[in-house]
């Protein structure tokens, strides 16, 4: 009973209270309770972040202890994790030392890896843009027009290309993405309802 049913009841109550705040006529008690539940979720989720850190610490400490492949990189990870956690907790994220780390360590690696994707995505487009049927033709045409429309050479080739590119982004792209967004929203609502009603219980894990 406590192992499966109680969690399902807790999930049902949490979901119903949040939904009640939104759908039922305004009620001070329900409003405050709904807001509380949403805030409590943020607090519990903050504890879950710690769980992730504990897992990361455990995995990399074991890797170093066993001298597995790449253990030296694990030292870098742990050093960075421990150092910046300590600085963040004791000196604050606005302290000059933390900001130095953010600006000169975190940001360059983030932008470096992000720009690496330019190479990956270009090689992916070389492999995927093949004129096999009309659908792949439309896919390729859309991509080529938008890419050429954003660089100077596109305008040199055909004066109206930037305008066509903007139109594709503003109209057919919005239409397609909107259809996908509406379909996704319906799916998200259905899945969320299943979670609240206890029909979706995979997150509880296996066993009793």
């Amino acid at each position: 009973m406590t192992r499966r049913t109680v969690p399902l009841i807790i999930g049902f109550l949490a979901g119903t209270i949040v939904l009640g705040k939104y759908f039922l006529p305004q009620n001070a008690f329900l409003d405050s309770l709904g807001t509380d539940v949403v805030n409590w979720r943020t607090i519990v989720a903050a504890f879950a972040l710690g769980l992730g850190a504990v897992n990361l610490l455990g995995t990399h400490t074991m890797r170093i202890a066993r001298k597995e492949k790449g253990w030296d990189a694990s030292i870098v990870l742990l050093a960075s994790l421990v150092t910046f956690t300590a600085i963040g907790l004791f000196k604050g994220t606005t302290s000059p030392v933390y900001q130095w780390g953010f600006n000169y360590l975190y940001q360059p690696i983030y932008s470096g890896i992000s720009s690496l994707l330019a190479f990956m995505i270009t090689s992916a487009s070389y492999r995927s843009f093949r004129f096999k049927d009309w659908q792949s033709g439309v896919l390729m045409l859309g991509a080529v027009i938008v890419m050429l429309g954003q660089v100077g050479i596109g305008e040199l080739l055909f004066r109206g290309l930037p305008a066509v590119s903007s139109w594709i982004m503003a109209v057919p792209n919005t239409a397609g993405m909107r259809g996908i967004a509406i379909g996704g929203a319906l799916g998200a609502i259905a899945l969320s309802l299943r979670v609240i009603l206890g029909l979706e219980r995979g997150y509880l894990g296996g066993g009793q």
Binding site: G11, S192, I196
Partner: peptide, 9 residues
């Protein structure tokens, strides 16, 4: 379960 329920709502 609490997080999932609240997140679903």
């Amino acid at each position: 379960a609490f997080m999932m329920g609240a997140a679903a709502g």
